[in-house]
Write a protein that binds this DNA or RNA. Structure first.
Length: 608
RNA sequence: CGGGAUGUAGCGCAGCUUGGUAGCGCACUUCGUUCGGGACGAAGGGGCCGCAGGUUCGAAUCCUGUCAUCCCGACCA
């Protein structure tokens, strides 16, 4: 390809809409253009990158025995009602674009394809003899993100590879899950990305085991906590750690554990309370009030107890709540803090926030249009406290020396606390968690039988009975991956694509096209490279050399061949974009020198 | 949806406080000089100043409303 024919428009200034380096560079280098929030045109260079990523994904999925397919993006609401996800995905902050057709039928624009593929499987797969099957597709997904961000990182329309596997038993699912795990590691390595696998929350999709693949980069939206020995890594949403032991509270139980009143005027925060009375945060039980909204309209007040020095992990909380009430009330739509304002809106009496204790009665909920009793949850660290300080449920008053039984409460500990960097690891208390940031580019799940049961997707077993499929699902954000590659591979001058996914492999730059010797030699080398099967780009523009060098750096083509002053003597210069080095060599030696290197780099970071 | 900011040429911005002919840099077109790290000179083209009302002799500028975009939180590949 010739640059003069490439529709290349590069920008000298950073567009104001971009925040992170990869987004700025993709815009500046002419790879993408924004059409609306979260909606982008992939310009020809970008499309070449996306096709290369897709090709790697395709090759590895095919090698892992998966079958490529293409499923509809317009999906009938009925299908989603059968899985129970229609309301959760459309109402409230649901992310599915949905519409009515001319017959007034409801349709959704596919944010994911579990429903479609499960109904298809139910149709086609009748016998255990046909299993296992792993179907995948690479296509555009639509999600009405609450806040699209960072270019392709969080778009409302993006390219995804999604795969769904069907099995006769759990062991077979686990086997395919492991095969996908290996395939994913190969995919990211082949694309030249450093990625780490972390334990993850399975979120809205549901299911049991789940693992995310994170491209490490400072601009990543996710916080990863990992042990230095490499044996444990998890998304903070999911991470577990050992909390520091609580400092025992002096003075023992008071009033048989019912606690003695402690005057705490204006001490509404843990810090003020501790400072005022020489207490440690770990000696305090703090209480958070929240309201969980369910699909069926049920509004459930939550009373969450945490040890004073701990933070709530909202993902763990949401899982605990939907685990307890989801079966009865449908999807959990939202969990929000109860505030003085929201209490008033619900028609409830004001509460002494800052002085709440776990013994807060249900009676105050009466007449508020919400469930009449709290769902009471306590984190392990709070439940394990034998003697503690807590709010007295009156302004300016706490209780000293209370215990759970003394307050007349029985609590079961649940993991609700957010693990923090620096805390001890569960698998080895000598290790401490370290934090890093990552961009989630892949996620694999063992879904189990959630969807197949909901949608009545069954097959006949060897014994002749009918059972729902065991399912797995496996996603890769193709367009996100491409941008994540830029985030991981760039410098002050522009992009440094890993060769395996670069739009072109070699850029031939005649320093001065007006120089007949340079133009002729550059043209010859360009032809030779194409002949040799190298994806070459020739910068034939009558620009000054400096402009072409700057643009070349910005574009990030891995190799640059400069045909300049030495052209008359048949000498050219070879520059590797990612390295600082460059060296001169005879033009006749170029192919012999370059080809083995290009071939090696086409394998990305794959060893051997 | 809550909090913050911004809408002026393709991109980046000034002008607005104190109303009076719409500007700068980059990009684009033509000519000349230059030619290995975003050249220089000359000449040009391009604007419903987000939109709608209002105030005024007169509005990019003041007032009201509205829409859009971006940033901070909840969502996810």
């Amino acid at each position: 390809m010739r640059v003069s024919r490439l529709m290349l428009v590069t920008l000298r200034d950073d567009p104001a809409e971009a925040e992170i380096p990869s987004h700025k560079l993709l815009l500046r280098a002419g790879y993408i253009r924004r059409l609306a929030p979260g909606i982008f045109a992939y310009l020809p260079l970008m499309w070449r990158v996306l096709r290369k990523v897709s090709r790697v994904v395709r090759e590895e999925m095919d090698a892992a025995g998966a079958l490529e397919t293409l499923l509809p993006q317009l999906q009938p609401a009925d299908l989603w009602r059968r899985s129970g996800r229609w309301a959760g995905y459309t109402a409230g902050e649901g992310i599915m674009f949905h519409l009515h057709d001319r017959q007034d039928r409801e349709l959704g624009l596919g944010p994911t394809h579990e429903e479609v593929v499960t109904s298809l499987a139910a149709d086609l797969l009748r016998s255990y003899r046909q299993l296992p099957v792993n179907l995948y597709q690479i296509q555009t997904k639509f999600r009405d993100e609450i806040r699209p961000r960072f270019g392709l990182m969080r778009g409302r329309e993006f390219i995804m590879k999604d795969a769904y596997s069907f099995h006769a038993d759990e062991a077979c699912l686990a086997q395919t899950y492991a095969v996908m795990d290996r395939a994913y590691r190969r995919i990211f390595a082949r694309c030249g990305l450093r990625a780490v696998a972390v334990e993850a929350d399975s979120g809205a999709i549901g299911g049991s085991a789940s693992q995310e693949f994170m491209v490490t980069a400072d601009a990543g939206e996710d916080l990863i906590l990992a042990s230095p020995d490499g044996h444990y890594a998890a998304n903070q949403e999911r991470a577990q750690s050992l909390a520091e032991p609580a400092v025992p509270l002096a003075g023992g139980l008071r009033a048989g554990g019912a606690g003695e009143p402690l005057a705490t005027p204006g001490q509404a925060t843990i810090e003020q309370l501790c400072a005022g009375h020489g207490l440690q945060a770990s000696q305090v039980v703090k209480v958070l009030l929240l309201l969980a909204r369910f699909e069926d309209g049920h509004d459930q007040p939550l009373l969450v107890a945490l040890r004073g020095d701990q933070q709530l992990n909202e993902v763990k909380l949401a899982n605990a709540v939907s685990g307890r009430l989801g079966a009865k009330h449908g999807a959990l739509l939202e969990v929000a803090a109860l505030t003085p304002d929201s209490l008033k809106r619900a028609g409830l009496d004001p509460l002494p926030f800052g002085f709440l204790g776990p013994q807060l009665g249900d009676d105050l909920l009466a007449g508020g249009g919400v469930a009449p009793s709290f769902l009471r949850l306590a984190d392990h660290t709070a439940a394990e406290l034998e003697i503690f300080v807590c709010g007295a449920n009156q302004p300016d008053r706490h209780l000293l020396g209370a215990s759970w039984s003394g307050l007349g409460l029985s609590v079961e500990g649940v993991d609700l606390r957010a693990a923090q960097p620096g805390e001890r690891c569960v698998h080895d208390p000598r290790q401490r968690l370290e934090a890093s940031r990552g961009i989630e580019v892949g996620h694999i799940f063992q879904l189990g039988r959630k969807y197949s049961t909901a949608m009545d997707a069954c097959f006949t077993t060897e014994a002749g009975s009918s059972e729902p499929f065991w399912m797995g699902c496996y996603g890769i954000g193709v367009s996100r991956l491409a941008q994540a590659a830029v985030e991981q591979h760039h410098d002050g001058n522009g992009i440094c694509w890993p060769l395996a996914i670069a739009p072109f492999e070699v850029l031939v730059v005649p320093a001065n096209v007006a120089d007949a010797a340079q133009a002729a030699l550059a043209g010859r080398l360009y032809d030779d490279l194409l002949q040799a099967g190298v994806e070459a780009l020739l910068d034939d523009r009558s620009e000054r050399a400096g402009v072409k060098f700057k643009d070349g750096d910005l574009l990030g083509i891995p190799w640059r061949v400069v045909v300049g002053r030495g052209a008359a003597e048949g000498r050219v210069e070879l520059v590797e974009r990612s390295g600082a080095g460059s060296h001169e060599l005879p033009a006749d030696d170029l192919l012999a020198h370059l080809l083995p290197r290009v071939e090696r780099q086409r394998r990305g970071l794959l060893d051997g």
